[in-house]
Design a binder for these strands. Sequence first.
DNA 1: GTGAAAGCGCTAACAC
DNA 2: GTGTTAGCGCTTTCAC
Lengths: 341, 341
Amino acid sequence: MSRPKPRAKLADIAARAGVSVTTASFVMSGRTDMRISTGTTERVLRAARELDYRPNLTARSLRTQDSRTIGLVADSIATGHHGGTMIQGSLHAAVRHGRRMLVVETAGEPEVEDALIADLVSWQVEGFVYATESHDEARVPPALREQPIVLLNCRDGAIPAVVPDEVAGGRTAALPLTEAGHRARIYVVGEAPDDVVPGRDRVRGITAALQEAGTTLDGHVECAWSPEAAYDALTALLAAGAQPAALICLNDRIALGVYQALAEADVGVPNDVSVVSFDDSDLARWLRPGITSVALPHFEMGALAVETLLDEDRRPGVQLVPMPLRERGSVAPPSRTRPAR
Amino acid sequence: MSRPKPRAKLADIAARAGVSVTTASFVMSGRTDMRISTGTTERVLRAARELDYRPNLTARSLRTQDSRTIGLVADSIATGHHGGTMIQGSLHAAVRHGRRMLVVETAGEPEVEDALIADLVSWQVEGFVYATESHDEARVPPALREQPIVLLNCRDGAIPAVVPDEVAGGRTAALPLTEAGHRARIYVVGEAPDDVVPGRDRVRGITAALQEAGTTLDGHVECAWSPEAAYDALTALLAAGAQPAALICLNDRIALGVYQALAEADVGVPNDVSVVSFDDSDLARWLRPGITSVALPHFEMGALAVETLLDEDRRPGVQLVPMPLRERGSVAPPSRTRPAR
DNA sequence: GTGAAAGCGCTAACAC
DNA sequence: GTGTTAGCGCTTTCAC
C-alpha cells in the first residue's frame, strides 16, 4: 500500500506562509482567543489550500488524548437488516456529534469478541455501544464493563441501555383492534416464553390493553416465530374449529405464515379476520393486504445510544423507546357473519 | 467522558521491570532480532501483565505511519440488509488481516460524503472500500480517486471493483428451467432498461442460455421491481390469455407479486407454472413453495473487496463474483395439461 | 544484551 | 501578535 503523495504538514504550511507552526496551528484550528492578524490568517489559509493540507488526526489525537472515535460492537450486523438500521442510527448521531465509528462484529464468539474489544481500547476509543440483534438480556464482556458503555437492544443490570418499549408496543398492537370494535375471539400467535423479552413483554402489553377494554384473549397459539411454524399452527387451529376474529402475530414472519394458512382456508383478511403484527418489516408492506404492524424503532435507538454515551452525565437506567404503529389494510370491524368453513 | 483509570504506558512497565523503554518495546512487540535475555523478557512480560498494559495504537500509528485501518464508505447500510451483508464480509476479511474498519454512511449526499471522506483521510486510513446498495455505475467522489480504493457492488471506469457476475447469474437462473425440460412459454418478469446493470445483464444471460438450449423467451413482462407492480402486470398478462409455463422474476420482490397474482388466478406453483428468481432473500425461503433463486454473493464480495484493497499489486480490473443457485420447490417439468382458466 | 535519544505531527504553555 | 519549546506514547537507529 504505497502512500501516493506525502501529505503536507503544519510545518510545511507554516514555512510557506512565513510564520511559525504555532500560528499556523491556531489559524487552522480556528481558535480566536489567540488573536492573529487578518493578513497572517489569510496567508496561512492560502498556503494550506495550495498545499492541500489535511491535519493528521492521529497526531492530534495523540496530543489531545481525545480520539473522537467510538466503538460499535455488534453480535451481528446483517441478520434481518435490523442490525443495519441500528448502526445507521448510531452512525448518524455519531457524525452529528463529530465522531467517527469503528465497527466490529463478533459473531457471538467470546474470544474474538475479547480480542476485538482489546483492540478498540488500544485505539483509545471514547466509549462503546454494544448492540445485539435481538432484544434480550446480554452477557456483556468483562472487558467492556470497565469502559464507558451503552447497551443497544439489550440489557445487563445497571449498565445504561436503550431498548424498545415492548410492553407499550403490545398495548399499541391491541389498539387498532379494540378501536375497530373487537372484543371477542382475539388470539395471539407465536410462543412467548418468560425468558424471551419481546414475546413476554408484548403479550403483557396486549393482555393489559385488552383487559382495560373489558375483554381478554381467547387463545394463544404457541408456535416458533417462523412462517412455517405459524402456518402449521394456524392451520391446526382452524382445523380444530376455532373461528378467530382477530389475530395478533408476535412478528411479521409469523404473520406471513398466518396469511398463508388463512388464504388456504379461504378466510379473508380483513373481512373475516383482522391481523396485526410486530416489526413492520418489508413483509408487512408487501403482503396483500398490507399488515398493520408495530414497528421497532431501530434507527432512533441507535442514535439515542450514542447520544447517551456522549452525554457527560449519562443516565444510568434503561431507556425505553416507543414502538410506533403503522396502520395498513389488515384490520376491520368484526364481521357479523362468522367465516364459513 | 471521563477516562476511568490512566492506562499504563511503556515507560511504566519499563520502570517496574527495571529496564529501558527500548527493551520493553522490543519485548512487547515480540521482536526476536534484538535478542533480549529470557530473564529480562520474563520480567517485562510480568510487569505488563500486572499493570494491565495496552499499547497505545494511536502513538504507534503516528510513529510507524501505518494506521492498520481501512475506511468503508457506503451509500446505505440498511436498505434490504444487502448492505449489512457486504459490510459483514468486509469486516471479517479486515480482522483476518489485522485491520479495523471505520464505517461511514453518506445517504447519497455529496457534501456529507466529501466531509466524511476528508475526515477518514485525515485519520490516515490505508485505503477505502466504496460500497453501494445496488449494483450500478457509480459516481466515485473525486476525493477518493486519489486514494487506494476498491469499489464494492459498483464500477467506475478503470478503478478496481468487485461486483456480482450478473450475466452468468442470468444463465444460472435459466438452468433449472431448461434442465427440467422447459423449452416454451418462458417469460421474464421485471423491466430491464439498458442503464440498469442487474436487469440488463441478467436478461442477457437468460437469453443466451435459452438460445443455447435451443429456445427463446416467449415474452418479457415489463414492470417495476416491486410486488405491487409485478402483481398488476402478471394479473394483466393472465387476463390477456397468456399461459406461461415458466416465469423468471428479476428479483424476489417481483416473485412475491407474481405468487400473489398466480394464487389469485388459481394457477399452481410449480405444477402449472415454474418460477425462478434472483436475490435469494428471506422471501424466497418463506414463500410456499420456496422459490428457486439465484443468490447475490454479498458476503464474499465484501471480503474480496478488502482483500483486493490490501493486495500490494491489486488487480486493476473488475472482478466478477459468481452468483450461486439456491434450489427450492418452485420448479417442475412443464405440465402436459395447460392451466385451466 | 541493553540503553539514550531522536522524532512521527500536532497542541498549548509560556516567553517576547 | 507571534515564536520557542516541551511533550503525547511509541518505534528504531546507533552507541556501548
